[in-house]
Design a protein around this nucleic acid. Structure first.
Length: 658
DNA sequence: TTAGGGTTAG
């Protein structure tokens, strides 16, 4: 006869052992291998059988029964608890996890560092970081596994400062770090809210790594590379990459990502080519492809992007969500909105990022209503909008001047979707109102913000002041901006632009002097064009292109044609009080016009010209490109720093609202 | 026992 017998098997269980048997589980266990009056050997066999049964129940996912059985098992083993802890995390059950933890304490395993490690992992996975920390605090023998488990948890939830404080403590008591410790500590630098400069902290950890001989560890060094990349220290990242004795596809991908994300997309593509030709053991995977697609998007290099798309198809990486999402963005940012839509339509599975990507590309192209329609469709399909969804859709409203629609969406964020508007959303709203010349409403919104407005918000206001030439408000915005980000040259240039537009030449001059005095430089205008899979770059008044004379001659010819039709060069964009002829010469040499002329010369008749520019398109370039699109009967696509302009037959898709 | 690079905005 098989019956439940508990007390007679309780041997070593600590004083609170009764707790073990008064857990939330039922006191009646349906199945047990425990028999009446067994011999000592039999008891051992039975215990072993029970432990094995608990473990197999865990493996089978039957956690409830495993817990039932644990309640009548007087000698649970370390392995049994390991299985139970693992199952609780797998089942995502905090209440079972707490039960297992309670039984573990009752069984005297609470000071077992192996199980403490597992408990910390479990609590992290169950989202209870405080309990993970408590386990750590209560564990007296802290092996490196125990430290690393907590470090991992803290790094993953973004508690960088706590992690780094503990790391100091660990060093102080003399526990040596291992290769895993360094990866977590490095990650903490990125996610920390440190009082000291996090990059400096990263360099300190770099020194620790070198001192302790981990410079050859591929994981540690790739993480270090990535830390430098995330701080925008491309040269440091590159030095780490070059110094790595062995590299694999992860290290190559991390360096490609570093270039792609730090506005060096050309370098990213060059490195990818090198990886393909030189690093035979480093086959790119889906992550590499995402990074490369980002680089193509950054360059607006459609032909390269298409080649990468082909490679993705050949390698059968086209079912991976981030790859497809990156493809949507790549096509959109290269001006091929319909190709982006096609990728989206053919996706078997979509996530919120896929929807955001599509909303974003329509918004960037000025199709605000379509972007809102996609946003609504997403909600209709049961996908909850994210924080970023609202940035994209509000941005779309801004590009299209959809003020009322934007205001309704902004209001709905909290009331309908329980998303608190953040800095980026306020920046979008200020941009939306400001562009629409509702500067009073924009400033009111800033004044009513329930947190301190940051540089993005004031920057949006200053940008709007530039469009509507509002000197007074521009001075107010720039006073704050010079305080918040004194090293951002763009703000000085914007204010000088506004003064120049208002013909306040001495004020414009003093702002530019201030810029120089602070050791800053105006970001030179630069435009890129891809012709026959090669990307050409132009800076203003460029003299280096071998075809420069031909380009100039064409521009002068076009300018004369335009003048004959009433065009007057808009030289007010020139910041200095020069004579009109000189100003005209400068404006005619703007990088974007040089790139358009180069495109006209080097592409076939009827072929679309695609340009990318690093700044906002100036009024004169906009007017000239409109004319060229009609005169030369060419479709011209220009992506400036904010959005797309489709020039066709003398008209721009932005409706002159940008 | 634990680890590195990824998609959307501005």
């Amino acid at each position: 006869m098989w019956v439940l017998q508990i007390p007679q098997f309780v041997r070593h269980v600590p004083s609170q052992s009764h707790l073990c048997y008064t857990s939330h589980v039922s006191s009646r266990v349906p199945v047990s291998f425990v028999s009446l009056n067994p011999s000592a050997n039999l008891i051992n066999d039975i215990n072993s059988n029970n432990n094995q049964l608990i473990q197999s129940l865990c493996k089978g996912g039957n956690l409830k029964q495993a817990l039932h059985l644990l309640c009548c098992e007087p000698n649970p083993t370390q392995q049994t608890f390991e299985h139970l802890i693992y199952s609780c995390a797998q089942k995502n059950s905090l209440s079972y996890g707490l039960d297992v933890h309670r039984c573990l304490v009752d069984s005297g395993f609470d000071q077992d560092p192996f199980l403490a490690t597992k408990l910390i992992n479990m609590y992290y996975e169950l989202g209870s970081i405080d309990r993970a920390r408590k386990v750590f605090d209560e564990t007296r023998e802290r092996t490196i596994y125990v430290w690393n488990a907590l470090f991992r948890a803290l790094a993953m939830v973004g508690h960088g400062k706590e992690l780094l404080d503990l790391y100091i403590q660990m060093n102080w008591i003399g526990t040596p770090s291992d290769r895993f410790t360094y990866t977590y500590v490095l990650k903490a630098c990125v996610v920390s809210e440190l009082s000291v400069c996090p990059l400096r902290k990263g360099k300190e950890i770099h020194a620790h790594i070198l001192r302790h001989g981990y410079e050859a560890n591929i994981h540690v060094m790739t993480t270090l590379l990535d830390v430098y990349a995330k701080f925008g220290s491309v040269s440091y990242a590159n030095s780490v990459f070059c110094a790595m004795p062995t590299k694999n596809f992860v290290s190559w991908s991390a360096m490609i990502a570093c270039f792609a994300k730090n506005e060096m997309p050309m370098k990213a593509l060059e490195l990818f080519q090198l990886m393909m030709f030189e690093a035979c053991n480093s086959v790119p995977n889906s992550v590499t492809m995402v990074n490369v697609l980002q680089a193509c998007a950054g360059l607006a290099a459609l032909e390269q992007g298409k080649l990468i798309h082909g490679y993705i198809l050949r390698r059968q990486l086209d079912s991976i969500l981030p790859v497809l999402n990156a493809l949507i963005t790549m096509y959109g940012r290269c001006g091929e909105i319909l190709m982006g839509q096609r990728v989206f339509d053919n996706m078997k599975k979509r996530d919120v990022v896929s929807w955001n990507s599509l909303i974003s590309i329509y918004g960037m192209h000025g199709f605000g209503k379509k972007a809102i329609q996609i946003f609504e469709n997403m909600i209709h399909q049961g996908v909850s909008p994210s924080y970023i969804s609202f940035i994209t859709v509000l941005g779309a409203c801004s590009h299209a001047g959809l003020v009322e629609e934007g205001k309704i969406l902004f209001e709905s964020m909290l009331s309908k979707y329980r998303i608190h508007p953040g800095m980026e959303h306020y920046a979008c709203m200020v941009d939306l109102l400001g562009r629409a010349n509702r500067l009073g409403e924009a400033i009111k919104l800033i004044e009513d913000m329930h947190f301190e407005p940051g540089p993005t918000v004031w920057g949006s206001l200053l940008g709007s002041c530039r469009i509507h030439c509002n000197v007074e408000l521009a001075e107010r915005a720039s006073t704050v901006l010079f305080e918040l980000e004194p090293r951002n040259a763009g703000n000085y240039v914007l204010l000088a632009d506004i003064y120049a537009e208002a013909k306040l030449w001495s004020e414009a001059k003093s702002v530019m002097k201030l810029l120089e005095a602070r050791g800053l430089q105006k970001l030179p205008g630069c435009s890129w064009i891809e012709v026959k899979r090669k990307v050409y770059s132009f800076v203003s008044v460029d003299e280096h292109n071998p075809q420069i004379e031909e380009i100039h001659a064409l521009l002068v010819k076009l300018s004369n044609e335009m003048k004959a039709q009433g065009y007057v060069p808009q030289t007010n964009v020139v910041l200095y009080d020069l004579d009109e002829e000189e100003k005209e010469r400068i404006v005619l040499g703007h990088s974007e016009k040089l790139a358009v002329a180069f495109g006209l010369i080097n592409t076939a008749k009827g072929e679309t010209i695609r340009i990318r520019k690093n700044l906002r398109l100036c009024e004169d370039c906009h007017a000239v490109t409109k004319f060229i699109s009609k005169f030369a009967n060419r479709e011209i696509l220009v992506r400036d720093v904010n959005r797309f302009h489709h020039f066709r037959d003398g008209v721009c898709s932005c409706g002159d609202y940008w």
